[in-house]
Nucleic acid binder design. Sequence first.
DNA 1: GAGTGGTCTAGACCACGCA
DNA 2: GCGTGGTCTAGACCACTCT
Lengths: 239, 239
Amino acid sequence: MSETPGYRPLYRQVYDIVIRRVAEGAWRPGEALPSEQNLARELGVSQGTMRKVLDALTAEKVLERRQGKGTFIAESTQERTQFRFFRLARPGGKRLTPSLGTESARVRAARASERTRLELDRDARVVELSRVRLIEGVPAIRELIILPAAIFPGIEKQMPLPNSLYTLYQSGFGVTIVATHEELSAQLATDEDHEELGISTGAPILVIDRIAVGLTDRKVEWRLSRVSSENLVYAVTLT
Amino acid sequence: MSETPGYRPLYRQVYDIVIRRVAEGAWRPGEALPSEQNLARELGVSQGTMRKVLDALTAEKVLERRQGKGTFIAESTQERTQFRFFRLARPGGKRLTPSLGTESARVRAARASERTRLELDRDARVVELSRVRLIEGVPAIRELIILPAAIFPGIEKQMPLPNSLYTLYQSGFGVTIVATHEELSAQLATDEDHEELGISTGAPILVIDRIAVGLTDRKVEWRLSRVSSENLVYAVTLT
DNA sequence: GAGTGGTCTAGACCACGCA
DNA sequence: GCGTGGTCTAGACCACTCT
C-alpha cells in the first residue's frame, strides 16, 4: 500500500524519533520539551530542521508551542478536545456541551465484529461502556463504547467517568487520540432509544460509528452514538 | 472578532499578494506559476519566505507543486474534487461516484432565508438547481442548490450540468471552492422523497445542509441534499 | 545538462513572557 | 535582560523531470 520512499529526509527521521519519545511518555501532558535549540543540538540537526519537525507535530496537535514560553505536550483538556471531536450543535452553529446521565461498564470477551474493527487478537477482552448523555439537561445521546481491555486496564472501576473520556484516556492511560474516523447514517429510533432518550419509537435519529486512533495509528476505541436528531445537527467543515 | 495583529509578518503580506492574484485569475487552472526563485525575486523576498507562502497555499489545495516541474494552480478535476467534498460511501468505506438522474434549473428572486445564508443584497437573484443523483444506477440523492445569479451568470442555460459542479464553477466562472460548512441531521422521508428516490415515506434519510466557500471567503453555494440512508453513510475523518 | 521543487544549514534579528 | 519561539535571509546541495 504505502510508498517505499527509497530516500528518507532527515526531518522525517527526526520526526520519528520525537514522536516515539512522545508516545513512550517521555514527557507528561502539559510538560515542556527542551527548547528547539537544545533538541536540535542533542539530535545533531540544525535549528531549521528541528523547527520543521516541531511545527509538523504542532499542526497535528500533538505539541503546542507558545512564543516566549516553550514547546509543550498538548493536553486533552475539556475545552480543547471538546469541540475537536464532539461535533453536535444547534442548527445554525451554536456549540453544545453534553453532561452525563446514566452509565454502566463491564469487561467481557471481544466479539468477532469488535476484534475486526479494533484489530484485536482472538482471545482479546474488551471493556464495554454504555452511557446516556444530556444536552442542556435533556437525554439526547446514547453511547456504546468498546475499548481494548489491555490498553485501558481497570477503567471500568473508575466510574463515574468524566464527561470528556479522551482526557481520561490521556491522563490515566497515556493514550492520546489524534484522529477519528466516523460514519454517519440516519436510522429510526428503536424501543430502547424511546426508553432512554424519551423520543418516539420511529423518530429519525443520527447514528455515528466512530473509530478513534491513537498516536501510533493504533485503533483505540470503537464508539456507537445514537443521537436524538430533534434540534441537533452534526456540524463539520471540510477543507 | 478577528485579532488585530499589530505586526504583520512578511510572508503574510506576500501570501495576500499571491492569493489575490490567484483569485483575480492571473493564472488559469492547471497553468504554471513562475518558479519559486523568480517569484521571490519579483516580490523582493528570499526564496525561503516565498517557499513558506507557496507551501501554505499548497496545503490549502489552492496550488500544487511537483518536484522537477513547477508550481501550478490546482485544478478541480473530477478525480481530485470528487472525494474531497463528496463524503458518501458504503458502510465500511468503499467510496462511491454518483451519476446524474434528472435535473432542472430556474432563476428567481432570492428568498429571505437565502439572502441570509448566502449574505446577499435585498434585491439579489439566485439560480435554483434541482437534481436527483444516482448511486450505482439507483436514485439516492435529491439536491437543491441555490447560487447567487451574479456570480454564476447563465449557468442555468448550461444544462445538462456536469456531475462535478465544482469543476464547472472553476472552469466556467472562475470560482474555486476551498471549504464547505456542513450540518447533518436525520429526518423522515417525505412523499416527494418517496416519489423521486423510490424509498418509503417515513424511511430515515440523511439531510446535509452545506454552505460552500470560495477563495476570498465568499459564500458561493447553498446546497441541501437529502440522501437515502439505505446502505449509504457519510464518512469523515476528524483530526 | 538545465531547470524545477525539496532539504538542510548557519546565522541574524524580532516578538513575547517572565522574573 | 534573558530565554523562548517566530521570522527572514543567503547559500549549498539533493531529487526529479524533460530535452
